[in-house]
Measured scan of single mutants.
Amino acid sequence: LHIEINVNGLRIELHNVSEELAERIREILEKVDDREEARRLAEELIK
């Protein structure tokens, strides 16, 4: 499954994740104000 999410102008592509996991990642990242911090957090979440 390939999912693309957009959060605060940051486009993140997720591969091989469930829709539920992608939604949780999006919800978490929406709470982060700083774009660079959101990017770093996204990288950690999808490892």
Rank of each mutant, 00 (worst) to 15 (best):
residue 1 L to H: 12
residue 1 L to S: 12
residue 1 L to N: 13
residue 1 L to G: 13
residue 1 L to R: 10
residue 1 L to E: 07
residue 1 L to C: 09
residue 1 L to D: 07
residue 1 L to I: 13
residue 1 L to W: 01
residue 2 H to C: 11
residue 2 H to D: 06
residue 2 H to T: 14
residue 2 H to G: 04
residue 2 H to S: 08
residue 2 H to R: 05
residue 2 H to L: 09
residue 2 H to P: 07
residue 2 H to V: 15
residue 3 I to T: 05
residue 3 I to C: 04
residue 3 I to Q: 03
residue 3 I to E: 02
residue 3 I to M: 05
residue 3 I to Y: 05
residue 3 I to S: 03
residue 4 E to R: 01
residue 4 E to A: 08
residue 4 E to S: 11
residue 4 E to T: 15
residue 4 E to M: 03
residue 4 E to P: 01
residue 5 I to M: 03
residue 5 I to Q: 00
residue 5 I to P: 00
residue 5 I to S: 00
residue 5 I to G: 01
residue 5 I to F: 01
residue 6 N to F: 03
residue 6 N to P: 02
residue 6 N to R: 02
residue 6 N to W: 01
residue 6 N to Q: 06
residue 6 N to D: 15
residue 6 N to T: 07
residue 6 N to E: 15
residue 6 N to L: 11
residue 7 V to F: 05
residue 7 V to W: 03
residue 7 V to P: 01
residue 7 V to N: 08
residue 7 V to R: 01
residue 7 V to D: 08
residue 7 V to G: 06
residue 7 V to Q: 05
residue 8 N to R: 05
residue 8 N to F: 00
residue 8 N to Q: 03
residue 8 N to C: 09
residue 8 N to Y: 00
residue 8 N to V: 02
residue 9 G to N: 06
residue 9 G to H: 02
residue 9 G to T: 00
residue 9 G to Y: 00
residue 9 G to V: 00
residue 9 G to I: 00
residue 10 L to A: 14
residue 10 L to D: 15
residue 10 L to N: 15
residue 10 L to I: 15
residue 10 L to P: 04
residue 11 R to D: 12
residue 11 R to G: 11
residue 11 R to T: 15
residue 11 R to V: 15
residue 11 R to W: 11
residue 12 I to T: 01
residue 12 I to K: 00
residue 12 I to P: 00
residue 12 I to D: 01
residue 12 I to Y: 04
residue 12 I to H: 01
residue 12 I to A: 01
residue 12 I to F: 07
residue 12 I to G: 01
residue 13 E to F: 11
residue 13 E to N: 08
residue 13 E to V: 15
residue 13 E to K: 13
residue 13 E to P: 03
residue 14 L to P: 00
residue 14 L to K: 00
residue 14 L to T: 01
residue 14 L to D: 01
residue 14 L to Y: 03
residue 15 H to A: 03
residue 15 H to Q: 05
residue 15 H to Y: 05
residue 15 H to D: 04
residue 17 V to I: 10
residue 17 V to C: 03
residue 17 V to E: 03
residue 17 V to P: 05
residue 18 S to I: 03
residue 18 S to R: 04
residue 18 S to G: 09
residue 18 S to L: 04
residue 18 S to V: 04
residue 18 S to T: 14
residue 19 E to H: 15
residue 19 E to N: 12
residue 19 E to A: 14
residue 19 E to T: 13
residue 19 E to L: 15
residue 19 E to K: 14
residue 19 E to M: 15
residue 20 E to F: 03
residue 20 E to Q: 11
residue 20 E to P: 05
residue 20 E to D: 11
residue 21 L to D: 11
residue 21 L to N: 05
residue 21 L to E: 12
residue 21 L to Y: 10
residue 21 L to R: 06
residue 21 L to Q: 13
residue 22 A to E: 03
residue 22 A to V: 15
residue 22 A to R: 04
residue 22 A to N: 02
residue 22 A to P: 01
residue 22 A to Q: 04
residue 23 E to Y: 04
residue 23 E to T: 14
residue 23 E to V: 12
residue 23 E to D: 13
residue 23 E to C: 06
residue 24 R to E: 08
residue 24 R to P: 00
residue 24 R to A: 13
residue 24 R to V: 12
residue 25 I to H: 00
residue 25 I to Q: 00
residue 25 I to Y: 02
residue 25 I to M: 05
residue 25 I to F: 06
residue 26 R to W: 06
residue 26 R to F: 08
residue 26 R to G: 03
residue 26 R to N: 03
residue 26 R to L: 11
residue 26 R to M: 10
residue 27 E to F: 02
residue 27 E to S: 14
residue 27 E to T: 12
residue 27 E to Y: 02
residue 27 E to M: 09
residue 28 I to W: 07
residue 28 I to E: 08
residue 28 I to A: 14
residue 28 I to F: 08
residue 28 I to M: 11
residue 28 I to L: 12
residue 28 I to H: 06
residue 28 I to V: 10
residue 28 I to T: 08
residue 29 L to W: 02
residue 29 L to F: 10
residue 29 L to N: 01
residue 29 L to D: 01
residue 29 L to Y: 10
residue 29 L to I: 07
residue 29 L to R: 00
residue 29 L to C: 01
residue 30 E to M: 13
residue 30 E to N: 11
residue 30 E to L: 14
residue 30 E to H: 10
residue 30 E to P: 01
residue 30 E to Q: 12
residue 30 E to T: 12
residue 30 E to C: 07
residue 30 E to W: 04
residue 30 E to G: 11
residue 30 E to I: 13
residue 31 K to Y: 11
residue 31 K to H: 13
residue 31 K to G: 13
residue 31 K to L: 13
residue 31 K to W: 08
residue 31 K to P: 03
residue 31 K to E: 11
residue 31 K to R: 12
residue 32 V to A: 10
residue 32 V to D: 04
residue 32 V to K: 04
residue 32 V to C: 04
residue 32 V to W: 09
residue 32 V to P: 03
residue 32 V to N: 11
residue 32 V to I: 13
residue 32 V to G: 07
residue 32 V to F: 12
residue 33 D to Q: 14
residue 33 D to R: 10
residue 33 D to Y: 14
residue 33 D to M: 14
residue 33 D to N: 13
residue 33 D to I: 14
residue 33 D to F: 14
residue 34 D to R: 06
residue 34 D to P: 04
residue 34 D to F: 06
residue 34 D to L: 07
residue 35 R to M: 15
residue 35 R to A: 14
residue 35 R to V: 14
residue 35 R to G: 13
residue 35 R to L: 14
residue 35 R to W: 14
residue 35 R to D: 10
residue 35 R to P: 15
residue 36 E to G: 07
residue 36 E to R: 06
residue 36 E to Y: 05
residue 36 E to A: 08
residue 36 E to T: 10
residue 36 E to M: 07
residue 37 E to I: 09
residue 37 E to D: 10
residue 37 E to F: 04
residue 37 E to V: 11
residue 37 E to R: 11
residue 37 E to S: 10
residue 37 E to L: 12
residue 37 E to N: 09
residue 38 A to F: 06
residue 38 A to E: 01
residue 38 A to K: 03
residue 38 A to W: 02
residue 38 A to G: 06
residue 38 A to S: 07
residue 38 A to N: 04
residue 38 A to M: 12
residue 38 A to D: 01
residue 39 R to P: 02
residue 39 R to C: 13
residue 39 R to D: 04
residue 39 R to S: 11
residue 39 R to Q: 12
residue 39 R to H: 08
residue 40 R to A: 11
residue 40 R to K: 12
residue 40 R to L: 10
residue 40 R to S: 10
residue 40 R to V: 09
residue 41 L to N: 04
residue 41 L to C: 06
residue 41 L to I: 12
residue 41 L to M: 12
residue 42 A to N: 01
residue 42 A to Q: 02
residue 42 A to C: 04
residue 42 A to I: 15
residue 42 A to T: 09
residue 42 A to D: 01
residue 43 E to H: 08
residue 43 E to S: 04
residue 43 E to N: 08
residue 43 E to F: 03
residue 43 E to R: 03
residue 43 E to I: 08
residue 43 E to L: 08
residue 44 E to W: 04
residue 44 E to F: 03
residue 44 E to V: 08
residue 44 E to T: 08
residue 45 L to K: 02
residue 45 L to P: 01
residue 45 L to F: 09
residue 45 L to Y: 07
residue 45 L to R: 01
residue 46 I to T: 10
residue 46 I to K: 03
residue 46 I to P: 01
residue 46 I to R: 02
residue 46 I to M: 10
residue 46 I to F: 04
residue 47 K to H: 11
residue 47 K to L: 11
residue 47 K to T: 12
residue 47 K to P: 07
residue 47 K to G: 13
residue 47 K to I: 14
